[in-house]
Design a protein around this nucleic acid. Structure first.
Length: 570
RNA sequence: CGGGACGUAGCGUAGCUUGGUAGCGCGCUUGCUUGGGGUGCAAGAGGUCGUGAGUUCAAAUCUCACCGUCCCGACCA
Protein backbone atom coordinates (compact mmCIF):
# COMPACT_ATOMS: atom_id res chain seq x y z
CA UNK A 1 0.00 0.00 0.00
CA UNK A 2 1.10 3.50 -0.76
CA UNK A 3 0.28 6.12 1.81
CA UNK A 4 -0.92 8.58 -0.82
CA UNK A 5 -3.45 6.01 -2.04
CA UNK A 6 -4.69 5.13 1.43
CA UNK A 7 -6.92 6.94 3.91
CA UNK A 8 -4.95 7.43 7.10
CA UNK A 9 -6.33 10.57 8.70
CA UNK A 10 -3.97 11.07 11.61
CA UNK A 11 -4.73 13.85 14.03
CA UNK A 12 -2.28 16.10 15.79
CA UNK A 13 -4.85 17.02 18.38
CA UNK A 14 -7.11 14.72 20.34
CA UNK A 15 -10.83 15.00 19.69
CA UNK A 16 -12.70 16.04 22.82
CA UNK A 17 -14.84 12.91 22.76
CA UNK A 18 -12.01 10.64 23.89
CA UNK A 19 -11.12 10.25 27.52
CA UNK A 20 -8.89 7.23 27.80
CA UNK A 21 -5.58 6.71 26.02
CA UNK A 22 -6.54 3.82 23.78
CA UNK A 23 -9.62 5.70 22.58
CA UNK A 24 -7.54 8.78 21.85
CA UNK A 25 -5.04 6.72 19.91
CA UNK A 26 -7.75 4.92 17.94
CA UNK A 27 -8.89 8.33 16.72
CA UNK A 28 -5.52 10.04 16.37
CA UNK A 29 -3.97 7.16 14.45
CA UNK A 30 -6.88 7.21 12.03
CA UNK A 31 -8.17 3.72 12.87
CA UNK A 32 -11.81 4.49 13.61
CA UNK A 33 -14.31 7.33 13.44
CA UNK A 34 -17.44 7.75 15.47
CA UNK A 35 -20.80 7.75 13.74
CA UNK A 36 -22.66 8.43 16.96
CA UNK A 37 -22.39 7.33 20.57
CA UNK A 38 -21.36 3.67 20.77
CA UNK A 39 -21.17 3.22 16.99
CA UNK A 40 -17.91 3.37 15.06
CA UNK A 41 -16.71 3.07 11.50
CA UNK A 42 -13.52 1.13 11.05
CA UNK A 43 -11.23 2.97 8.65
CA UNK A 44 -8.89 0.89 6.46
CA UNK A 45 -6.06 0.73 8.99
CA UNK A 46 -8.32 -0.11 11.91
CA UNK A 47 -10.04 -2.77 9.88
CA UNK A 48 -6.74 -4.39 8.95
CA UNK A 49 -5.78 -4.65 12.62
CA UNK A 50 -9.24 -5.96 13.48
CA UNK A 51 -9.00 -8.62 10.77
CA UNK A 52 -5.68 -9.76 12.17
CA UNK A 53 -7.18 -10.25 15.61
CA UNK A 54 -10.07 -12.13 14.03
CA UNK A 55 -7.70 -14.35 12.12
CA UNK A 56 -5.78 -15.26 15.25
CA UNK A 57 -9.05 -16.11 16.97
CA UNK A 58 -10.16 -18.17 13.97
CA UNK A 59 -6.91 -20.11 13.77
CA UNK A 60 -6.94 -20.98 17.44
CA UNK A 61 -10.61 -21.94 17.46
CA UNK A 62 -10.04 -24.18 14.46
CA UNK A 63 -6.99 -25.66 16.13
CA UNK A 64 -9.11 -26.44 19.19
CA UNK A 65 -11.55 -28.31 16.99
CA UNK A 66 -14.36 -25.78 16.93
CA UNK A 67 -16.45 -25.42 13.76
CA UNK A 68 -17.08 -22.02 12.26
CA UNK A 69 -20.66 -21.13 11.40
CA UNK A 70 -22.47 -17.87 10.79
CA UNK A 71 -25.83 -17.30 12.44
CA UNK A 72 -28.33 -14.57 11.66
CA UNK A 73 -27.97 -11.36 13.60
CA UNK A 74 -31.73 -10.93 13.35
CA UNK A 75 -33.59 -13.29 15.65
CA UNK A 76 -37.24 -14.17 16.22
CA UNK A 77 -38.47 -13.39 19.75
CA UNK A 78 -40.12 -16.81 19.99
CA UNK A 79 -36.88 -18.64 20.74
CA UNK A 80 -36.17 -16.19 23.53
CA UNK A 81 -39.59 -16.85 24.97
CA UNK A 82 -38.87 -20.55 24.74
CA UNK A 83 -35.60 -20.25 26.63
CA UNK A 84 -37.26 -18.09 29.25
CA UNK A 85 -34.94 -15.17 28.66
CA UNK A 86 -37.30 -12.93 26.74
CA UNK A 87 -38.23 -10.95 29.83
CA UNK A 88 -34.90 -10.96 31.66
CA UNK A 89 -32.91 -9.90 28.61
CA UNK A 90 -35.43 -7.20 27.68
CA UNK A 91 -33.15 -4.38 28.75
CA UNK A 92 -30.34 -5.19 26.30
CA UNK A 93 -32.48 -5.83 23.23
CA UNK A 94 -32.49 -3.68 20.17
CA UNK A 95 -35.72 -4.47 18.41
CA UNK A 96 -36.93 -4.05 14.88
CA UNK A 97 -40.30 -4.50 13.21
CA UNK A 98 -41.00 -5.81 9.75
CA UNK A 99 -43.70 -4.56 7.38
CA UNK A 100 -46.27 -6.76 9.08
CA UNK A 101 -45.30 -5.09 12.39
CA UNK A 102 -43.87 -8.34 13.65
CA UNK A 103 -41.13 -7.88 16.24
CA UNK A 104 -37.53 -9.02 15.67
CA UNK A 105 -34.52 -8.94 17.94
CA UNK A 106 -31.04 -7.86 16.92
CA UNK A 107 -29.02 -10.60 18.52
CA UNK A 108 -27.13 -9.67 21.70
CA UNK A 109 -25.90 -13.28 21.96
CA UNK A 110 -26.74 -16.60 20.30
CA UNK A 111 -27.44 -19.38 22.79
CA UNK A 112 -31.02 -19.65 21.57
CA UNK A 113 -30.06 -19.78 17.90
CA UNK A 114 -27.28 -22.33 18.20
CA UNK A 115 -29.32 -24.52 20.51
CA UNK A 116 -32.21 -24.44 18.06
CA UNK A 117 -29.82 -25.49 15.32
CA UNK A 118 -28.36 -28.30 17.35
CA UNK A 119 -31.81 -29.49 18.40
CA UNK A 120 -32.57 -30.09 14.75
CA UNK A 121 -29.23 -31.45 13.59
CA UNK A 122 -27.73 -33.54 16.37
CA UNK A 123 -29.53 -36.45 17.93
CA UNK A 124 -26.96 -39.08 18.94
CA UNK A 125 -24.13 -39.24 21.44
CA UNK A 126 -22.06 -40.44 18.50
CA UNK A 127 -22.22 -36.94 17.05
CA UNK A 128 -20.92 -35.33 20.23
CA UNK A 129 -18.95 -33.46 21.32
CA UNK A 130 -19.38 -30.51 19.00
CA UNK A 131 -18.30 -26.93 19.36
CA UNK A 132 -19.60 -24.20 17.04
CA UNK A 133 -18.29 -20.69 16.81
CA UNK A 134 -18.84 -17.55 14.82
CA UNK A 135 -17.31 -14.12 14.54
CA UNK A 136 -20.14 -11.68 14.19
CA UNK A 137 -21.60 -8.34 15.14
CA UNK A 138 -23.61 -8.27 18.34
CA UNK A 139 -26.13 -5.63 19.33
CA UNK A 140 -26.67 -4.58 22.90
CA UNK A 141 -28.56 -1.59 24.19
CA UNK A 142 -25.91 -0.77 26.76
CA UNK A 143 -26.89 1.45 29.65
CA UNK A 144 -23.87 3.56 28.94
CA UNK A 145 -21.64 2.97 25.96
CA UNK A 146 -18.16 4.29 26.65
CA UNK A 147 -14.52 4.50 25.86
CA UNK A 148 -14.84 4.02 22.11
CA UNK A 149 -14.87 0.35 21.21
CA UNK A 150 -14.62 -0.71 24.84
CA UNK A 151 -18.35 -0.77 25.46
CA UNK A 152 -20.35 -0.15 22.32
CA UNK A 153 -23.91 -0.63 21.15
CA UNK A 154 -22.65 -2.77 18.30
CA UNK A 155 -19.47 -4.79 18.53
CA UNK A 156 -17.78 -7.80 17.05
CA UNK A 157 -17.72 -10.90 19.16
CA UNK A 158 -16.44 -14.38 18.75
CA UNK A 159 -18.96 -16.62 20.41
CA UNK A 160 -18.62 -20.38 20.70
CA UNK A 161 -20.97 -23.01 22.09
CA UNK A 162 -19.99 -26.54 23.03
CA UNK A 163 -22.32 -29.55 23.29
CA UNK A 164 -21.32 -32.64 25.18
CA UNK A 165 -22.88 -35.92 26.16
CA UNK A 166 -21.13 -36.23 29.50
CA UNK A 167 -19.93 -34.05 32.37
CA UNK A 168 -16.37 -35.13 31.77
CA UNK A 169 -16.70 -34.28 28.11
CA UNK A 170 -18.07 -30.86 28.99
CA UNK A 171 -15.09 -30.25 31.23
CA UNK A 172 -12.74 -31.24 28.45
CA UNK A 173 -14.49 -28.87 26.05
CA UNK A 174 -14.19 -26.13 28.63
CA UNK A 175 -10.50 -26.78 29.12
CA UNK A 176 -9.86 -26.72 25.39
CA UNK A 177 -11.43 -23.28 25.13
CA UNK A 178 -9.58 -22.07 28.20
CA UNK A 179 -6.30 -23.12 26.61
CA UNK A 180 -7.24 -21.66 23.24
CA UNK A 181 -8.05 -18.33 24.86
CA UNK A 182 -4.74 -18.29 26.64
CA UNK A 183 -2.99 -18.73 23.29
CA UNK A 184 -5.18 -16.18 21.52
CA UNK A 185 -4.39 -13.37 23.91
CA UNK A 186 -0.73 -14.29 23.96
CA UNK A 187 -0.59 -14.16 20.19
CA UNK A 188 -2.27 -10.75 20.25
CA UNK A 189 0.59 -9.51 22.37
CA UNK A 190 -1.58 -9.09 25.44
CA UNK A 191 -0.66 -9.80 29.00
CA UNK A 192 -3.98 -11.35 29.97
CA UNK A 193 -4.83 -13.30 33.08
CA UNK A 194 -7.56 -15.89 33.61
CA UNK A 195 -9.55 -15.18 36.73
CA UNK A 196 -12.38 -16.98 38.46
CA UNK A 197 -15.61 -15.32 37.56
CA UNK A 198 -18.99 -14.98 39.10
CA UNK A 199 -21.54 -17.45 37.82
CA UNK A 200 -24.54 -15.65 39.26
CA UNK A 201 -27.75 -17.63 39.63
CA UNK A 202 -26.30 -20.49 37.56
CA UNK A 203 -24.01 -21.58 40.37
CA UNK A 204 -21.07 -23.87 39.78
CA UNK A 205 -17.41 -23.11 39.69
CA UNK A 206 -16.78 -23.24 35.97
CA UNK A 207 -16.39 -19.75 34.77
CA UNK A 208 -13.28 -17.81 33.98
CA UNK A 209 -12.82 -14.35 32.62
CA UNK A 210 -9.75 -13.31 30.70
CA UNK A 211 -8.62 -9.97 31.98
CA UNK A 212 -6.15 -7.46 30.62
CA UNK A 213 -4.73 -5.40 33.47
CA UNK A 214 -5.42 -1.71 32.83
CA UNK A 215 -6.30 1.20 35.06
CA UNK A 216 -9.09 2.14 32.69
CA UNK A 217 -10.70 -1.30 32.92
CA UNK A 218 -14.27 -1.59 34.16
CA UNK A 219 -13.56 -4.62 36.35
CA UNK A 220 -11.55 -5.26 39.46
CA UNK A 221 -9.48 -8.38 39.86
CA UNK A 222 -8.38 -9.71 43.23
CA UNK A 223 -5.16 -11.68 42.98
CA UNK A 224 -2.45 -13.19 45.11
CA UNK A 225 1.28 -13.06 44.49
CA UNK A 226 1.84 -16.00 46.83
CA UNK A 227 -0.16 -18.52 44.81
CA UNK A 228 -2.08 -18.45 41.55
CA UNK A 229 -5.33 -17.25 43.00
CA UNK A 230 -7.08 -14.62 40.88
CA UNK A 231 -10.76 -13.77 40.79
CA UNK A 232 -13.15 -11.08 39.74
CA UNK A 233 -13.99 -8.98 42.76
CA UNK A 234 -17.61 -10.09 42.31
CA UNK A 235 -16.47 -13.59 43.12
CA UNK A 236 -13.29 -13.16 45.16
CA UNK A 237 -13.13 -14.53 48.67
CA UNK A 238 -10.64 -14.07 51.45
CA UNK A 239 -9.83 -15.92 54.64
CA UNK A 240 -12.57 -15.37 57.22
CA UNK A 241 -10.61 -13.46 59.77
CA UNK A 242 -12.54 -12.33 62.76
CA UNK A 243 -10.92 -9.40 64.46
CA UNK A 244 -8.95 -10.54 67.49
CA UNK A 245 -10.51 -8.34 70.12
CA UNK A 246 -14.21 -8.97 70.33
CA UNK A 247 -14.48 -7.79 73.90
CA UNK A 248 -16.33 -9.26 76.83
CA UNK A 249 -19.03 -11.60 75.63
CA UNK A 250 -20.95 -11.39 78.89
CA UNK A 251 -21.74 -7.69 79.05
CA UNK A 252 -25.46 -6.99 78.69
CA UNK A 253 -26.81 -4.95 75.82
CA UNK A 254 -26.92 -1.28 76.54
CA UNK A 255 -28.89 1.33 74.66
CA UNK A 256 -27.31 4.73 74.28
CA UNK A 257 -28.32 7.99 72.66
CA UNK A 258 -26.67 9.00 69.41
CA UNK A 259 -28.53 12.08 68.31
CA UNK A 260 -27.96 12.98 64.69
CA UNK A 261 -25.67 10.02 64.04
CA UNK A 262 -26.70 8.21 60.86
CA UNK A 263 -23.49 6.78 59.47
CA UNK A 264 -20.88 4.24 60.44
CA UNK A 265 -18.28 6.91 60.02
CA UNK A 266 -19.97 9.32 62.45
CA UNK A 267 -19.96 6.66 65.17
CA UNK A 268 -16.20 6.26 64.83
CA UNK A 269 -15.75 9.87 65.90
CA UNK A 270 -15.86 11.48 69.32
CA UNK A 271 -17.63 11.17 71.66
CA UNK A 272 -18.44 7.61 70.55
CA UNK A 273 -15.12 6.48 69.03
CA UNK A 274 -16.41 3.06 68.04
CA UNK A 275 -14.18 1.56 65.36
CA UNK A 276 -16.00 0.61 62.15
CA UNK A 277 -15.01 -3.03 62.57
CA UNK A 278 -16.78 -3.03 65.95
CA UNK A 279 -20.03 -1.99 64.29
CA UNK A 280 -22.67 -4.00 62.49
CA UNK A 281 -23.94 -2.56 59.24
CA UNK A 282 -27.60 -3.40 58.71
CA UNK A 283 -28.93 -3.23 55.15
CA UNK A 284 -32.53 -3.67 54.13
CA UNK A 285 -33.14 -5.22 50.74
CA UNK A 286 -36.37 -6.08 49.01
CA UNK A 287 -36.13 -9.56 47.54
CA UNK A 288 -39.06 -10.60 45.38
CA UNK A 289 -41.17 -7.93 47.10
CA UNK A 290 -40.26 -9.11 50.60
CA UNK A 291 -37.78 -7.45 52.98
CA UNK A 292 -34.60 -9.14 54.20
CA UNK A 293 -31.88 -7.85 56.48
CA UNK A 294 -28.26 -8.13 55.54
CA UNK A 295 -25.60 -7.78 58.20
CA UNK A 296 -22.00 -6.87 57.53
CA UNK A 297 -19.15 -5.62 59.61
CA UNK A 298 -19.16 -1.83 59.60
CA UNK A 299 -16.02 -1.54 57.52
CA UNK A 300 -17.18 -4.03 54.88
CA UNK A 301 -19.15 -3.59 51.68
CA UNK A 302 -21.93 -5.78 50.40
CA UNK A 303 -21.14 -7.70 47.22
CA UNK A 304 -24.36 -7.90 45.24
CA UNK A 305 -23.05 -10.58 42.91
CA UNK A 306 -22.47 -12.84 45.92
CA UNK A 307 -25.89 -11.94 47.26
CA UNK A 308 -27.38 -13.04 43.95
CA UNK A 309 -25.78 -16.44 44.39
CA UNK A 310 -26.88 -16.76 48.00
CA UNK A 311 -30.47 -15.71 47.33
CA UNK A 312 -30.70 -17.68 44.12
CA UNK A 313 -32.31 -14.71 42.40
CA UNK A 314 -31.20 -11.43 40.92
CA UNK A 315 -34.50 -9.68 41.49
CA UNK A 316 -33.62 -7.67 44.54
CA UNK A 317 -32.93 -4.04 45.32
CA UNK A 318 -32.12 -1.85 48.28
CA UNK A 319 -35.25 -0.81 50.16
CA UNK A 320 -36.35 2.79 49.90
CA UNK A 321 -36.26 4.92 53.08
CA UNK A 322 -40.04 4.67 53.33
CA UNK A 323 -39.97 0.91 53.06
CA UNK A 324 -37.28 0.78 55.73
CA UNK A 325 -39.38 2.77 58.17
CA UNK A 326 -42.26 0.46 57.36
CA UNK A 327 -40.23 -2.64 58.14
CA UNK A 328 -38.08 -1.59 61.09
CA UNK A 329 -39.93 1.47 62.47
CA UNK A 330 -36.73 3.49 62.23
CA UNK A 331 -34.97 5.57 59.65
CA UNK A 332 -31.74 4.55 57.94
CA UNK A 333 -28.87 5.25 60.29
CA UNK A 334 -30.39 3.64 63.34
CA UNK A 335 -31.07 0.16 62.01
CA UNK A 336 -30.26 -3.12 63.65
CA UNK A 337 -31.28 -6.77 63.76
CA UNK A 338 -31.62 -7.16 67.53
CA UNK A 339 -35.09 -8.37 68.40
CA UNK A 340 -36.13 -8.57 64.77
CA UNK A 341 -38.49 -11.43 64.03
CA UNK A 342 -40.31 -12.47 60.90
CA UNK A 343 -37.69 -10.95 58.60
CA UNK A 344 -34.99 -13.25 57.21
CA UNK A 345 -31.55 -12.17 58.34
CA UNK A 346 -28.47 -12.88 56.20
CA UNK A 347 -25.15 -12.31 57.93
CA UNK A 348 -21.64 -12.25 56.58
CA UNK A 349 -19.39 -15.05 57.85
CA UNK A 350 -17.02 -12.57 59.39
CA UNK A 351 -19.62 -11.70 62.01
CA UNK A 352 -19.95 -15.26 63.26
CA UNK A 353 -19.24 -15.25 66.99
CA UNK A 354 -18.61 -11.51 67.12
CA UNK A 355 -19.45 -9.80 70.39
CA UNK A 356 -19.21 -6.34 71.90
CA UNK A 357 -20.55 -4.96 68.62
CA UNK A 358 -22.50 -1.77 68.18
CA UNK A 359 -25.56 -1.54 65.98
CA UNK A 360 -28.65 0.59 65.47
CA UNK A 361 -31.48 0.26 68.01
CA UNK A 362 -34.30 0.57 65.45
CA UNK A 363 -35.15 3.79 67.21
CA UNK A 364 -34.09 7.07 65.65
CA UNK A 365 -31.13 8.54 67.51
CA UNK A 366 -30.23 5.43 69.48
CA UNK A 367 -27.73 2.60 69.14
CA UNK A 368 -27.02 -0.59 71.07
CA UNK A 369 -23.62 -1.64 72.36
CA UNK A 370 -22.31 -4.98 73.67
CA UNK A 371 -24.30 -6.82 71.03
CA UNK A 372 -23.25 -10.45 70.57
CA UNK A 373 -24.04 -12.50 67.48
CA UNK A 374 -25.62 -15.79 68.44
CA UNK A 375 -26.87 -14.33 71.71
CA UNK A 376 -28.70 -11.20 70.62
CA UNK A 377 -28.97 -11.73 66.89
CA UNK A 378 -29.76 -15.08 65.32
CA UNK A 379 -29.23 -14.91 61.59
CA UNK A 380 -31.07 -17.57 59.63
CA UNK A 381 -28.37 -17.59 56.96
CA UNK A 382 -24.61 -17.23 57.11
CA UNK A 383 -22.75 -16.59 53.90
CA UNK A 384 -19.81 -14.86 52.30
CA UNK A 385 -21.45 -11.57 51.38
CA UNK A 386 -18.74 -8.97 51.65
CA UNK A 387 -16.58 -7.46 48.97
CA UNK A 388 -13.00 -8.55 49.34
CA UNK A 389 -10.72 -5.69 50.22
CA UNK A 390 -7.08 -5.10 49.44
CA UNK A 391 -4.73 -6.58 52.01
CA UNK A 392 -7.09 -9.29 53.25
CA UNK A 393 -5.58 -12.75 53.54
CA UNK A 394 -5.66 -15.12 50.56
CA UNK A 395 -7.89 -18.13 51.21
CA UNK A 396 -5.29 -20.44 49.70
CA UNK A 397 -2.01 -19.25 51.12
CA UNK A 398 -2.74 -16.45 53.56
CA UNK A 399 -0.70 -13.77 51.82
CA UNK A 400 -2.21 -10.30 51.50
CA UNK A 401 -4.44 -9.99 48.44
CA UNK A 402 -3.96 -7.32 45.84
CA UNK A 403 -6.48 -5.62 43.59
CA UNK A 404 -5.98 -4.57 40.00
CA UNK A 405 -8.35 -2.94 37.54
CA UNK A 406 -8.72 -4.83 34.29
CA UNK A 407 -10.51 -5.05 30.95
CA UNK A 408 -12.54 -8.21 30.38
CA UNK A 409 -11.68 -9.49 26.91
CA UNK A 410 -12.97 -13.05 27.15
CA UNK A 411 -15.26 -15.25 29.18
CA UNK A 412 -15.56 -19.02 29.27
CA UNK A 413 -18.61 -20.42 30.96
CA UNK A 414 -20.02 -23.84 31.64
CA UNK A 415 -23.71 -23.54 30.94
CA UNK A 416 -25.11 -26.94 31.82
CA UNK A 417 -28.45 -27.95 30.35
CA UNK A 418 -30.53 -24.80 30.79
CA UNK A 419 -30.80 -24.06 27.07
CA UNK A 420 -30.66 -27.61 25.77
CA UNK A 421 -33.61 -28.50 28.01
CA UNK A 422 -35.63 -25.43 27.12
CA UNK A 423 -35.00 -25.71 23.40
CA UNK A 424 -35.00 -29.50 23.15
CA UNK A 425 -31.39 -30.07 22.18
CA UNK A 426 -31.62 -33.73 23.15
CA UNK A 427 -29.51 -36.68 22.18
CA UNK A 428 -29.84 -40.39 22.83
CA UNK A 429 -27.09 -42.28 24.62
CA UNK A 430 -25.97 -45.84 23.98
CA UNK A 431 -28.93 -47.13 25.99
CA UNK A 432 -31.38 -45.20 23.82
CA UNK A 433 -32.11 -42.84 26.68
CA UNK A 434 -32.71 -39.20 25.89
CA UNK A 435 -30.68 -36.46 27.59
CA UNK A 436 -30.22 -32.76 27.10
CA UNK A 437 -26.76 -31.90 25.80
CA UNK A 438 -24.40 -30.31 28.29
CA UNK A 439 -23.40 -26.92 27.04
CA UNK A 440 -20.64 -24.40 27.47
CA UNK A 441 -20.37 -20.93 26.00
CA UNK A 442 -17.27 -18.95 25.25
CA UNK A 443 -17.00 -15.34 24.21
CA UNK A 444 -14.27 -12.99 23.08
CA UNK A 445 -14.88 -9.32 22.49
CA UNK A 446 -12.90 -8.95 19.30
CA UNK A 447 -13.24 -5.19 18.94
CA UNK A 448 -12.61 -4.75 22.63
CA UNK A 449 -9.54 -6.94 22.40
CA UNK A 450 -8.22 -4.67 19.68
CA UNK A 451 -8.61 -1.63 21.89
CA UNK A 452 -7.12 -3.51 24.85
CA UNK A 453 -4.01 -4.11 22.75
CA UNK A 454 -3.72 -0.37 22.16
CA UNK A 455 -4.39 0.37 25.82
CA UNK A 456 -1.53 -1.91 26.77
CA UNK A 457 0.88 -1.31 23.89
CA UNK A 458 1.75 2.37 23.55
CA UNK A 459 4.26 5.02 24.50
CA UNK A 460 4.36 8.81 24.45
CA UNK A 461 4.58 8.87 20.65
CA UNK A 462 1.66 6.58 19.91
CA UNK A 463 0.73 2.96 19.44
CA UNK A 464 3.37 0.23 19.61
CA UNK A 465 1.70 -2.60 17.72
CA UNK A 466 2.69 -6.17 18.30
CA UNK A 467 3.65 -7.55 14.88
CA UNK A 468 0.78 -10.05 15.06
CA UNK A 469 -1.96 -7.43 14.89
CA UNK A 470 -0.26 -4.41 13.30
CA UNK A 471 -2.16 -3.04 10.30
CA UNK A 472 1.10 -3.10 8.35
CA UNK A 473 4.27 -4.74 9.60
CA UNK A 474 6.72 -2.50 7.79
CA UNK A 475 6.56 1.17 6.91
CA UNK A 476 9.07 2.36 4.35
CA UNK A 477 9.88 6.02 4.81
CA UNK A 478 11.77 7.56 1.88
CA UNK A 479 12.79 11.11 2.73
CA UNK A 480 12.82 12.10 -0.92
CA UNK A 481 9.93 11.02 -3.09
CA UNK A 482 10.97 12.25 -6.53
CA UNK A 483 10.53 9.23 -8.80
CA UNK A 484 13.99 9.42 -10.34
CA UNK A 485 15.86 9.89 -7.07
CA UNK A 486 18.14 7.12 -5.88
CA UNK A 487 16.34 7.25 -2.55
CA UNK A 488 12.94 6.56 -4.09
CA UNK A 489 14.29 3.96 -6.46
CA UNK A 490 15.76 2.04 -3.55
CA UNK A 491 12.54 2.44 -1.59
CA UNK A 492 10.58 0.99 -4.51
CA UNK A 493 12.96 -1.93 -4.77
CA UNK A 494 12.69 -2.78 -1.07
CA UNK A 495 8.91 -2.28 -1.18
CA UNK A 496 8.56 -4.71 -4.08
CA UNK A 497 10.79 -7.33 -2.52
CA UNK A 498 9.03 -7.23 0.84
CA UNK A 499 5.63 -7.36 -0.84
CA UNK A 500 6.75 -10.32 -2.93
CA UNK A 501 7.65 -12.12 0.27
CA UNK A 502 4.15 -11.65 1.59
CA UNK A 503 5.01 -9.02 4.17
CA UNK A 504 2.43 -6.32 4.88
CA UNK A 505 4.23 -3.19 3.87
CA UNK A 506 3.21 0.41 3.42
CA UNK A 507 5.25 3.03 1.64
CA UNK A 508 5.02 6.58 2.94
CA UNK A 509 5.31 8.20 -0.49
CA UNK A 510 3.88 11.50 0.67
CA UNK A 511 5.84 14.58 -0.29
CA UNK A 512 6.07 15.69 3.32
CA UNK A 513 8.88 16.74 5.56
CA UNK A 514 10.76 13.97 7.34
CA UNK A 515 9.69 15.04 10.81
CA UNK A 516 6.04 14.67 9.94
CA UNK A 517 6.51 11.27 8.37
CA UNK A 518 8.43 10.00 11.37
CA UNK A 519 5.79 11.32 13.77
CA UNK A 520 2.99 9.73 11.79
CA UNK A 521 4.67 6.34 11.53
CA UNK A 522 5.20 6.36 15.29
CA UNK A 523 1.68 7.54 16.05
CA UNK A 524 0.20 4.74 13.96
CA UNK A 525 2.78 2.41 15.44
CA UNK A 526 4.08 0.24 12.61
CA UNK A 527 6.45 -2.32 14.17
CA UNK A 528 9.30 -1.73 11.73
CA UNK A 529 10.22 1.43 9.87
CA UNK A 530 12.80 1.54 7.12
CA UNK A 531 14.12 5.05 6.79
CA UNK A 532 15.82 5.84 3.50
CA UNK A 533 17.40 9.25 3.00
CA UNK A 534 20.26 10.85 1.14
CA UNK A 535 22.38 11.34 4.25
CA UNK A 536 22.38 7.74 5.38
CA UNK A 537 22.56 6.51 1.80
CA UNK A 538 25.74 8.53 1.36
CA UNK A 539 27.19 6.39 4.15
CA UNK A 540 25.95 3.31 2.30
CA UNK A 541 23.18 2.68 4.81
CA UNK A 542 19.45 2.53 5.28
CA UNK A 543 17.94 2.80 8.72
CA UNK A 544 15.83 0.06 10.22
CA UNK A 545 13.93 1.29 13.23
CA UNK A 546 11.89 -1.14 15.28
CA UNK A 547 9.07 0.77 16.96
CA UNK A 548 10.13 1.20 20.54
CA UNK A 549 13.66 -0.09 19.84
CA UNK A 550 16.97 1.38 18.77
CA UNK A 551 17.83 2.31 15.21
CA UNK A 552 19.74 -0.32 13.24
CA UNK A 553 21.79 0.93 10.26
CA UNK A 554 22.23 -1.74 7.58
CA UNK A 555 23.53 -1.88 4.05
CA UNK A 556 20.72 -1.54 1.51
CA UNK A 557 21.12 -5.08 0.20
CA UNK A 558 20.84 -6.46 3.75
CA UNK A 559 17.65 -4.62 4.59
CA UNK A 560 15.24 -7.35 3.52
CA UNK A 561 17.10 -10.00 5.43
CA UNK A 562 17.25 -7.86 8.57
CA UNK A 563 13.56 -7.08 8.42
CA UNK A 564 12.67 -10.74 8.08
CA UNK A 565 14.94 -11.56 10.98
CA UNK A 566 13.16 -8.95 13.14
CA UNK A 567 9.74 -10.28 12.16
CA UNK A 568 10.75 -13.83 13.02
CA UNK A 569 12.05 -12.68 16.38
CA UNK A 570 8.62 -11.14 16.98
C1' C B 1 -32.74 6.29 34.57
C1' G B 2 -30.36 10.12 38.21
C1' G B 3 -26.30 13.76 38.67
C1' G B 4 -22.55 16.89 36.34
C1' A B 5 -20.01 19.16 32.18
C1' C B 6 -20.29 20.49 27.25
C1' G B 7 -22.25 21.72 21.97
C1' U B 8 -18.98 28.01 17.67
C1' A B 9 -15.42 25.69 10.13
C1' G B 10 -12.82 18.71 9.30
C1' C B 11 -10.06 18.93 14.53
C1' G B 12 -8.72 21.93 18.95
C1' U B 13 -10.66 26.42 20.84
C1' A B 14 -11.69 32.24 22.12
C1' G B 15 -15.93 35.24 22.35
C1' C B 16 -21.14 34.46 26.39
C1' U B 17 -20.39 37.44 32.77
C1' U B 18 -21.98 43.14 30.65
C1' G B 19 -26.74 41.40 23.73
C1' G B 20 -24.52 45.29 18.60
C1' U B 21 -19.43 43.33 12.04
C1' A B 22 -17.74 35.53 14.62
C1' G B 23 -11.80 35.46 16.00
C1' C B 24 -7.37 32.29 16.66
C1' G B 25 -4.28 27.64 16.07
C1' C B 26 -4.07 23.00 13.31
C1' G B 27 -5.72 21.00 8.81
C1' C B 28 -7.26 22.25 3.52
C1' U B 29 -6.24 25.26 -1.54
C1' U B 30 -2.53 28.37 -4.34
C1' G B 31 2.40 30.52 -4.74
C1' C B 32 7.21 31.06 -2.98
C1' U B 33 10.49 28.95 0.70
C1' U B 34 12.44 24.82 3.36
C1' G B 35 14.06 19.70 3.05
C1' G B 36 16.71 14.09 8.64
C1' G B 37 11.95 14.96 13.81
C1' G B 38 4.88 18.08 13.05
C1' U B 39 9.64 24.47 8.08
C1' G B 40 8.87 29.86 7.17
C1' C B 41 6.22 33.72 4.53
C1' A B 42 2.03 35.33 1.77
C1' A B 43 -2.74 34.97 -0.36
C1' G B 44 -7.34 32.16 -0.17
C1' A B 45 -11.63 28.71 0.64
C1' G B 46 -14.52 26.94 4.50
C1' G B 47 -19.69 28.94 9.68
C1' U B 48 -27.90 27.49 9.64
C1' C B 49 -22.60 29.59 16.46
C1' G B 50 -26.70 21.72 17.95
C1' U B 51 -32.43 22.44 16.85
C1' G B 52 -36.88 25.09 17.86
C1' A B 53 -39.51 28.71 20.34
C1' G B 54 -39.39 33.17 23.43
C1' U B 55 -37.48 38.18 25.24
C1' U B 56 -35.41 42.42 22.37
C1' C B 57 -34.80 47.54 17.64
C1' A B 58 -30.95 43.72 17.74
C1' A B 59 -29.26 36.99 20.31
C1' A B 60 -23.29 32.78 19.56
C1' U B 61 -24.36 35.80 24.08
C1' C B 62 -30.46 36.19 28.03
C1' U B 63 -35.00 32.51 28.98
C1' C B 64 -37.50 27.81 28.04
C1' A B 65 -37.95 23.20 25.62
C1' C B 66 -35.87 19.50 22.77
C1' C B 67 -31.67 16.87 20.47
C1' G B 68 -26.68 15.26 20.80
C1' U B 69 -21.77 14.31 23.12
C1' C B 70 -18.64 13.14 27.34
C1' C B 71 -17.88 11.91 32.56
C1' C B 72 -19.74 9.95 37.36
C1' G B 73 -23.46 6.96 39.49
C1' A B 74 -27.25 3.63 39.46
C1' C B 75 -26.14 0.68 46.31
C1' C B 76 -24.60 0.21 51.73
C1' A B 77 -28.40 4.16 55.60
Amino acid sequence: MRWTQALIPTLKETPAEAEILSHKLLLRAGLVRKLTGGLYTFLPLGLRALRKVEQIVREEMDRAGALEVLMPALQPPEIWQQSGRYETAQAVFFKARDRAKKEWILGPTHEEVITTLVAGELSSYRQLPKNFYQIQTKFRDEIRPRFGLMRAKEFIMKDAYSFDATEEGAQTSYKKMYDAYTRIFQRCGLKAMAVEADTGVMGGKFSHEFMVPAETGENEVVYCDGCNYAANIEKATSRHMMHADTGDKELPIEKFATPGVTTINALTKAPYTIAAHQQIKTLVYIVNDKPVLILLRGDHQLNEAKLTGVLGTATFRPATPDEIVDVLKAKPGSLGAVGVKDIPVYADEVLRGASAMTTGANEDGFHLRNVALGRDIHPAHWADLRTTQIGEACSNCGKPLKIQRAIEVGHVFKLGTKYSKALNALFVDEKSEQHPAIMGCYGIGVTRTLQAVIEQCNDKDGIVWPISVAPYTVCITPLTVAKDSTVMQLAEKIYNELSARGIDVIMDDRDERPGMKFKDSELVGFPIRIGIGEKSLAKGEVEIKPRGGALIPVKPDQAIEKVIELIKAG
